[in-house]
């Protein structure tokens, strides 16, 4: 089933990482600029910030145990809600030409508003805190999911629908067992886009209005001229982004295995 893996999937593809790190180290040491600390300094600061706790807590510090879960929790809550709302509304729009004609322009307008601009509004509406941040993420990332779901639901194979009609599947069964699975590959494409968008909005919402979280830590480090701390937080965000993406792709591979395989054979 899995012949020669593409080059990027072999373990050997990681070799540019140590090379880049070594180059970075040499360049920053040669420059000696305080704004650009060498990676070794950044990593030891990261260790200090998050991995210098007691052994019985797996060396995690208080900051690692409060800020990171708080941020990740808000991100996942906002993203999951957006997934629910976006898929439901998207499929409704995709299946109903009437609804699509009425709401389509509104959706395209709302999508065109840059999500960070919503921050002042939501801060006024909900005050600073998790509720505000989750709402910012929800309204910022729901659009790719909604538009992709609508696209997927609009293009269900007519013969699938005819088969469902011929065997008298009820409306609910048709939606749940025919339309939704048909649209799922598109829904997942939207979810994946939204996940990286959610990470960005999480940080931005914490930079502006928060008393904890990774974004708040970043702001705190910057205010106290802790540049290795700033860099370390940025690296942490990059690593989180990679981890989310990898976890998402693994889930997608499992759930959409029929889609990949069916498209390979036909």
């Amino acid at each position: 089933m899995n012949p020669a893996k593409p080059p990027s999937k072999r373990p050997g593809w990681l070799w540019p990482v140590p090379v880049a790190l070594a180059g970075w180290e040499l360049a920053t040491r040669a420059a000696g600029d305080l704004s650009f600390p060498p990676p070794t300094t950044i990593f030891s600061r990261m260790r200090e910030m998050w991995l210098s706790g007691p052994a019985d807590r797996l060396w995690l510090t208080d900051a690692a145990l409060t800020d990171i879960p708080a941020s990740v929790g808000r991100l996942l809550a906002g993203w999951a809600l957006a997934g629910l709302v976006g898929t439901t509304l998207g499929i409704a729009l995709g299946r109903s030409p009437l609804l699509s004609r009425f709401l389509g322009p509104l959706v395209h307008f709302a999508r065109a508003v840059p999500p960070p601009l919503l921050l002042p509004f939501f801060m006024a509406l909900f005050a600073i805190g998790a509720r505000m941040q989750i709402n910012v993420i929800l309204f910022g990332v729901v659009w790719p999911i909604l538009i992709n779901s609508a696209e997927g639901a609009r293009h269900v194979d007519p013969l699938h629908l005819e088969t469902a009609a011929a065997f008298g599947l009820s409306r609910g069964q048709r939606l749940l067992r025919v339309v939704l699975p048909s649209a799922l590959p598109k829904v997942f494409a939207g979810l994946r886009l939204s996940l990286s968008l959610a990470l960005i909005l999480m940080v931005i919402s914490e930079l502006v209005g928060s008393v904890d979280g990774i974004g708040f830590q970043l702001l705190d480090a910057q205010r106290s001229y802790d540049l290795p701390g700033v860099w370390g937080t940025i690296v942490l965000l990059g690593l989180l982004g990679c981890a989310f993406n990898a976890a998402f792709l693994a889930a997608e591979r499992r759930i959409l295995s029929w889609h990949r395989a069916a498209n390979q054979t036909t």
């Binding site: 194979d157 013969l159 699938h160 005819e162 088969t163 067992r177 025919v178 699975p181 048909s182 799922l184 029929w258 889609h259 069916a262 036909t266």
Partner: peptide
Amino acid sequence: FQDYSRSLFPW
């Protein structure tokens, strides 16, 4: 139907 590949649900 004639087109079995599109009439059976691949999922």
